[in-house]
Simulated scan of single mutants.
Amino acid sequence: MLIKIKNQKLKLALMLALPLALSACSDDEVEVIKEVEVIKEVEVIVEVPAPVPTPVDVSYEVTITNLTNAQPLSPAAVVLHADGNLFEVGMVPSVELEKMAEGGMNTGLLALGMASASGAGAIGPGASETISVKVQDITDAKLSITTMLVNTNDAFTGLNALDLSSLAAGDSWSTTAGVYDAGTEVNSEMAGTMPGPADGGEGFNPTRTDTGFVSMHPGVVTSDDGLTNSVLTVQHKFDNPAIHIMVTRTE
Rank of each mutant, 00 (worst) to 15 (best):
residue 4 K to C: 09
residue 5 I to V: 15
residue 7 N to Q: 10
residue 10 L to D: 09
residue 12 L to E: 15
residue 18 L to D: 14
residue 18 L to Y: 13
residue 20 L to S: 14
residue 21 A to L: 15
residue 23 S to I: 07
residue 24 A to W: 07
residue 27 D to L: 11
residue 27 D to H: 07
residue 27 D to Q: 13
residue 28 D to G: 04
residue 28 D to C: 03
residue 29 E to L: 04
residue 33 I to T: 10
residue 35 E to W: 01
residue 42 V to P: 01
residue 45 I to V: 15
residue 48 V to K: 11
residue 51 P to C: 01
residue 56 V to H: 04
residue 60 Y to A: 15
residue 67 L to N: 11
residue 71 Q to F: 07
residue 73 L to T: 01
residue 73 L to W: 04
residue 78 V to F: 08
residue 79 V to N: 02
residue 80 L to Y: 03
residue 81 H to N: 11
residue 83 D to E: 12
residue 85 N to R: 14
residue 85 N to I: 03
residue 87 F to M: 07
residue 88 E to K: 13
residue 92 V to C: 07
residue 92 V to G: 05
residue 92 V to H: 10
residue 96 E to W: 00
residue 98 E to V: 07
residue 99 K to I: 00
residue 99 K to W: 01
residue 103 G to M: 08
residue 106 N to F: 00
residue 106 N to M: 01
residue 107 T to K: 09
residue 111 A to D: 02
residue 113 G to P: 10
residue 114 M to V: 08
residue 118 S to K: 10
residue 121 G to D: 15
residue 121 G to E: 12
residue 128 S to A: 14
residue 131 I to V: 14
residue 133 V to G: 08
residue 134 K to I: 11
residue 138 I to V: 15
residue 141 A to W: 05
residue 148 M to A: 12
residue 153 N to H: 00
residue 154 D to K: 00
residue 156 F to S: 04
residue 158 G to W: 00
residue 159 L to D: 00
residue 161 A to C: 10
residue 163 D to E: 14
residue 165 S to H: 15
residue 168 A to S: 13
residue 170 G to F: 04
residue 171 D to V: 01
residue 172 S to H: 00
residue 172 S to Y: 00
residue 172 S to I: 04
residue 174 S to T: 13
residue 176 T to H: 04
residue 177 A to E: 02
residue 178 G to N: 07
residue 181 D to Q: 06
residue 182 A to S: 15
residue 185 E to W: 07
residue 186 V to K: 08
residue 186 V to L: 10
residue 188 S to L: 03
residue 191 A to L: 14
residue 192 G to P: 05
residue 194 M to I: 06
residue 194 M to H: 03
residue 197 P to T: 06
residue 198 A to P: 02
residue 206 P to R: 04
residue 207 T to W: 02
residue 212 G to L: 06
residue 212 G to P: 04
residue 215 S to V: 06
residue 220 V to N: 11
residue 226 G to C: 08
residue 226 G to L: 01
residue 228 T to H: 11
residue 231 V to T: 14
residue 233 T to M: 03
residue 233 T to L: 03
residue 234 V to P: 04
residue 240 N to A: 13
residue 242 A to M: 02
